[in-house]
Design a protein around this nucleic acid. Sequence first.
RNA 1: CGCGAAGUAGAGCAGCGGUAGCUCGUUGGGCUCAUAACCCAAAGGUCGGGAGUUCGAUCCUCCCCUUCGCAACCA
Length: 695
Amino acid sequence: MTDFKRYLITAALPYANGPVHIGHLAGCYIPADIYSRYLRAQKRDVKFVGGSDEHGVPITIRAMKEGITPQQVVDKYHAIIRDSFVKMGISFDIYSRTSGKVHHETASAFFKKMYEDGLFEEKETEQYYDEKTKTFLADRYITGTCPVCANPNAYGDQCEKCGSSLSPEQLINPKSTLSDAVPVKKQTKHWYFPLQQYESFLRTWILDEHKEWKNNVYGQCKSWLDKGLQSRAMTRDSNWGIKVPVKGAEGKVLYVWFDAPIGYISATKELTGAWADYWCREDTKLVHFIGKDNIVFHCIIFPAMLKAHGGFVLPDNVPANEFLNIEGEKVSTSRNWAVWVDEYLKDFPGCEDVLRYVLCANAPETKDNDFTWKDFQDRNNSELVSIFGNFVNRTFVLMHKLCAGKVPKLHEDILDATDKAIMSDIQNARGKVETALENFRFRDALFEIIDLSRKGNKYMQEKQPWIVAKQTSTSGQPAADAQKIIDNCLHLCLQLTANLAVLINPFLPTTARKMLHMMKVVDKMLDWENAGKLKLLSVGYSLREPELLFRKIEDAEITAQVEKLKSGLVKPAKITSMEESKPGNGKPEIVYDDFAKLELKTGLVTACEKVEKADKLLKLEVDLGKERRTIVSGIALHYKPEEMIGKQVIVVTNLAPRKMKGIESQGMILTAEDSDGKLQLLTPENSVTPGSNVS
RNA sequence: CGCGAAGUAGAGCAGCGGUAGCUCGUUGGGCUCAUAACCCAAAGGUCGGGAGUUCGAUCCUCCCCUUCGCAACCA
């Protein structure tokens, strides 16, 4: 367990169709970096690898929309992402990319070996195909009108407006998002990986041998295994990606979730000729840092692939974090509700460590957490500036004032209980931080360090050397006894400061370097073995004037960020596209005859009840004068059943009937949607006879 | 609908069978070396709701509610 010879740390490959935001950092890059820096400080053999994930359909679609090539898309974002990581101090030993040559060869060979060993199943299925752009369409890339709520922008797998799960067949007027073509079904062949064959292996390996994994990870794996695994297609129809290295597989590429994790292997290959030591020897500890959305791929599918291929180590742990929300709402890149790292770096130059601190201190380790700018400011101003920074600063200032700028002697003869307590606090801190880090509890580890500086402040307050200094002898200098007390206090505070530098180094590397500079010592002092030692600074050594480690963050900066976040918010896609298009609306012009095809009548709701097991559906009985009809409508989130009764509504009466949750709906009720997604019934201004024509 | 995780003071978190704890914030006091920073103290919670097991439950069991995630060819 503890005798691993090598450590291989991976952080999830960010998808190169956009920049990274703070949720990405908090989710895996910061914890992975802290862990790697900690291991390096312990002089362990560690490789920290990562890279951009550059394949997959969303990239080809972005390229198509922007009129550039997929390669140009990934080149652009790979550069931005890499730059953000470098500036944030994420210390990858290599940051590679999956469009690279080594990766193509590695992933291709990996697939080929599995293929030749007969580990895949070949299956022919029918899939939707866009004949105009000559591409197969995932359900996600087919849109049409939702049969449940009539949202015209529902996806082939789901309607985001009403949350209904859909399949492409259910959409009214299905269209390809790529070209407006009507999708047609077409035969296609793919290679499936029969995960079920690895079920018993996975069961033993995870459920029996890795009970120490985090609750969220273990729970989700157990759920998958209990449900039973199924074959999964490992190839896709696309021309962007890694060609399937099999005869007759033209126009097919490896599924991104097959190719991406192999990217960890390729990156290691690019880094070192000794890559196989890290991937193939049992005494390597492999740790994948990821966000919770990736759990199954890293705990089930990739390990099964590694096992099937043979010859690779399996991850020892997969400490997945939950998600970070922003100002109470979940991050959404499409709505631009995010704090982008590249923008933070421009807005807060020199404050990289502050963001590292806040994201670690508030990391979503056990549940989703919320990032607020107010909390960012509070943590900076109180914990970093007031507690940690201030301790270091007052130590240095006093040392210059009372000890002539040199490390004072420790007079063992007059050490009292308070001195001894702080000495053991310093010695104990290391163990606490180590335990927390070994168990991937980064928040706790960081807290222990801040707590140590808190104890330092308290110690100094009790010793109050500035008061003691006033006990002067006849010469006007502090009395000899008084000076001894001052010496001891500042000696210990300085040793504590040196310890803080060692401990904080994995978390806030830039801050640790600043502290080294003040103490005039070399990087070597940051070696982890120095943590807990009380003789890091030698007596008589002269130190520099202090510089401030952190600056206060003003209210104005915070309100500006909140403002920026809110003003940058993109309204739902439908509304923006309408604003952008020419006056009128997004749909093509029609003639009167098209409109006349609709039969619209007024109706009176006579009865209404909620449809069971459907969040959004109400079942209504509507009086249309000559007849009564049952209509199912997706308005339950906006109207209660009882308030619907007696309402006048406008009904489309010649719409083909459609079954929803087993109830046949014989019409459609018209509503208007305002900007925040709330539905309002359309209703006659004054009461009219049920069954009146609407035109 | 199914599966997983989470719901504890104003905020963020810990505890997980025996009189509810930490940090920040708030209020009051003290100090002045320190970036109006530091130290001390107080106020603030029927531990999501309900039932059960137990001498006793925040902690175990069951049901329900809320949030997030996963799955159904979304990386």
